[in-house]
Design a protein around this nucleic acid. Structure first.
Length: 160
DNA sequence: GCCAACGTTGGC
DNA sequence: GCCAACGTTGGC
């Protein structure tokens, strides 16, 4: 059995929040609209069913990790790319050879407490975590097993 | 609302 | 292939 892997998915709560995810049928959503090649490659090549996801609210007050999810469907074509009515429409994406891919995620649980970006940045154990780095805009990021465990442990402890 | 950082585009 | 211009992300 392959090693489970860990990811962080960013979403702006004003467009798609944790509550939106948990309100879905089966608490499962298609993660469409990713239009960055590096993020696409992670979804197409690396994500496996069962991988763990930190659900992160970006552009929020404050930004931070609110819950966990799992990958429940591996990379497949993002059909919003050839839907002219979609805000994610990409005229250059050919349905016969799709440029953009998506995965499905299912909500697992809301963290016992929200872990803000400030708190992530203040934890020396997370100094190398991508999301704590300035200017890091990748909307889908790998997370190490140690980082995953640390964030969950923080959520079990009282606020600092 | 501001703006730094970043990815993409397109002229050359 | 270089790089300036542009649009977007996302923290503050």
């Amino acid at each position: 059995m392959p090693e489970p892997r860990y990811w962080l998915f960013k979403s702006e709560p004003s467009s798609y929040s944790w509550d939106d995810l948990t309100a879905e049928d089966g608490q499962t959503a298609e993660w469409d609209g990713v239009r960055n090649y590096q993020a696409r490659n992670f979804m197409r090549d690396d994500m496996r069913i069962g991988d763990y996801v930190l659900f992160y609210h970006s552009n929020a007050k404050p930004p931070g990790v609110i819950g966990t999810a799992r990958i429940v469907r591996e990379g497949y074509p993002d059909d919003s790319a050839w839907n002219p009515d979609s805000r994610y429409y990409d005229a250059k994406s050919d349905p016969a050879n799709p440029t953009w891919m998506m995965v499905d995620i299912k909500a697992e649980r809301r963290l016992p407490r929200f872990i803000s970006l400030n708190e992530l940045k203040a934890n020396p154990a997370l100094a190398d975590m991508m999301v704590t780095k300035r200017g890091q805009r990748l909307s889908v990021q790998p997370v190490t097993a140690a980082e995953w465990a640390e964030v969950l442990a923080m959520a079990e402890r009282a606020a600092p």
